[in-house]
């Protein structure tokens, strides 16, 4: 095994996972206009739902995956309806939204830990465990699926936003929610649907991480941080930017610790974040405010 091809593969795998989180996060940020820090916990909800359906109830693993993704979407939808919609109606500040989102994350993490314990869990090894060689690097079946899905989701989102009535309504709400409301768009309905879709993507990311490494209640927080850094690097609210930022972050992290200690991994990521916030706060593809 050559070290450089393998580091490239490792970077791409990390980028694929980050990009899924960044895609959903950017979609929600672009529409609802706040940093949904509670978004990360939906990855854990997706993962634990699959674990419950497959390991506890004994459902077929593929049915469990579909149900798990839908459960994450439904929980995201409920959070929007119960918490964020009401805060929007009260015209709460973005700080209030952020604190509420943190509260949502902490509460849901605690509930998961109570229901399933804080112990690390692994899914039954029933999906592809084969490994493949790509240009001298090794990639597992699950990682290949994650990579493929991240690309597919990006294209589906782009096509939906460009060519469907629903996508145009999302863009209208994203550009100016008040004007969108005046022209007859049900802005709350659109935001709720966006939360459902974004949360489904988070749930799927959680499921894939579960198959790759395993799940634990606090898994969402670090994934969210990486997704947020990737979004800021690429341009917050920009679909392509989120994906670009994710893969860039994957490469920076993995090559960054090639010659120095791995303890620096997070320090490297956050240093890059600070550099972008200082010198290019709108990210690589973000619009200037």
């Amino acid at each position: 095994m050559e070290i450089v091809p393998q580091l490239i593969v490792n970077s791409i795998i990390a980028g694929a996972i980050y990009s899924m989180v960044a895609l959903g996060f950017n979609l929600i940020y672009g529409t609802a206009k706040f940093f949904d820090l509670g978004y990360g916990v939906l990855t854990a909800i997706g993962g634990y739902a699959v674990f419950y359906f497959s390991s506890t109830l004994g459902f077929n693993i593929y049915i469990s995956i579909i149900l798990g993704v839908l459960v994450a979407g439904f929980v995201g939808y409920l959070i929007e309806k119960i918490v964020y919609k009401k805060l929007r109606a009260r015209k709460a500040s973005s700080m209030v939204f952020m604190v509420a989102a943190l509260g949502v994350m902490t509460t849901l993490q605690a509930i998961i830990a109570i229901l399933f314990s804080s112990q690390f869990q692994v899914f039954p090894a029933t999906i592809n465990t084969q490994t493949f060689q790509i240009f001298g690097g090794v990639i597992t079946g699950v990682q290949l699926i994650a990579l493929t899905l991240s690309i597919v989701i990006m294209f589906v989102l782009v096509l939906t936003l460009r060519f469907t009535k629903f996508g145009k309504a999302i863009k209208a709400v994203s550009d100016d929610a008040e004007v969108a409301k005046m022209v007859g768009i049900n802005t709350d309905g659109i935001i709720s649907k966006v939360f459902f879709i974004g949360s489904c993507i988070a749930g799927l990311a959680g499921v894939l991480v579960g198959f790759d490494t395993g799940i634990e209640p606090i898994m969402g927080f670090s994934l969210l941080l990486k997704g947020v850094i990737a979004s800021i690097i690429g341009g917050v609210g920009n679909i392509y930017g989120g994906v670009l930022g994710s893969f860039l972050l994957g490469f920076i992290e993995n090559f960054g610790i090639w010659k120095i200690s791995g303890e620096w991994k997070d320090a490297i990521s956050f240093s890059v974040l600070i550099v972008f916030l200082l010198f290019r706060p709108n990210g690589i593809l973000g619009k200037k405010q």
């Binding site: 393998q6 992290e253 610790i257 791995g262 991994k265």
Partner: peptide, 20 residues
């Protein structure tokens, strides 16, 4: 010889360096 963070999940780059 490398110290690594606990609860990292993704140890692939360390694994790559070990194999190398």
């Amino acid at each position: 010889n490398e110290l690594v963070p606990n609860a990292n999940g993704d140890y692939r780059t360390f694994a790559t360096k070990i194999i190398a």
